[in-house]
């Protein structure tokens, strides 16, 4: 009961803080929409082309905009000293980070999932394909937050951390991108997306179990 209370307070705190800084959340979403919309303008909007690039473009943009907000995951808590206090909360750090990552997903990942259908329409996707797109993002975006948290914990307190974070985290995002975009492409081409989706689900399961633990170890090293 006590543990649930503590975790609930942390989740409330992180979401409330994000809501008090709505401009950050909105900026990330705006980036997502604009980045996706630039492609048809640059490449041209022939329907066959749209079908071919749509899934990949939406997924790449989701990946980049989720990464944009990773920096904030720990850095503001680090700057004002609240991260120290979180380390002293009488509870395993792994659990605390799991909650922080979940809060990050609600603020930075879930809105992408909600916006994606509109962007899917832009690429002339059918209802079924949009459904697969949403499903792949629901499974994939939490994985982005989980993997990103390890990177964000490692670079904490470093100068020029933003670029380093991208270099560190983007290669790790590749499998998520391949199977995420792959699932939607398969569906657009009339092939079953089940295999790719199952693989992302498997990766997500692994991520939920191991990523908070890895991030906790990384955070303790960074804060020494």
């Amino acid at each position: 009961m006590k543990i649930a209370g503590i975790l609930q307070a942390l989740l409330w705190r992180d979401i409330k803080l994000a809501m008090r800084r709505q401009s950050d959340v909105v900026a990330t979403l705006f980036f997502f929409v604009v980045a996706v919309s630039l492609f048809p303008l640059g490449i041209g909007s022939a329907p066959s082309l749209m079908h071919a690039i749509g899934p990949g473009v939406i997924w790449v943009a989701a990946l980049l905009s989720s990464m944009l907000s990773l920096n904030r995951l720990f850095s503001s808590d680090y700057a004002d000293g609240t991260l120290e206090q979180l380390l002293l909360v009488p509870m395993p750090l792994t659990l605390i980070l799991a909650i922080k990552i979940f809060a990050h997903w609600i603020v930075a990942g879930l809105p992408l999932v909600i916006l994606a259908p509109i962007l899917g329409l832009q690429f002339d996707m059918g209802a079924k394909d949009i459904g697969i797109l949403v499903l792949s993002l629901i499974l994939g975006t939490p994985l982005l937050s989980l993997i990103g948290a390890i990177g964000a914990a490692l670079i904490l307190g470093m100068r020029g951390g933003g670029v380093l974070l991208a270099i560190l985290v983007l290669p790790l995002y590749i499998p998520v991108l391949i199977f995420g975009a792959g699932a939607v492409t398969a569906s657009v081409n009339g092939i079953s997306p089940e295999g790719a989706l199952s693989l992302i689900a498997a990766m997500l399961t692994l991520g939920v179990v191991f990523a908070p633990f890895a991030a906790a170890v990384a955070l303790r090293i960074s804060l020494e």
Partner: peptide, 11 residues
């Protein structure tokens, strides 16, 4: 209670 007061400006 450390050097930094551990206070969130937005709350």
């Amino acid at each position: 209670i450390g050097h930094q007061p551990a206070i969130k400006d937005d709350l």
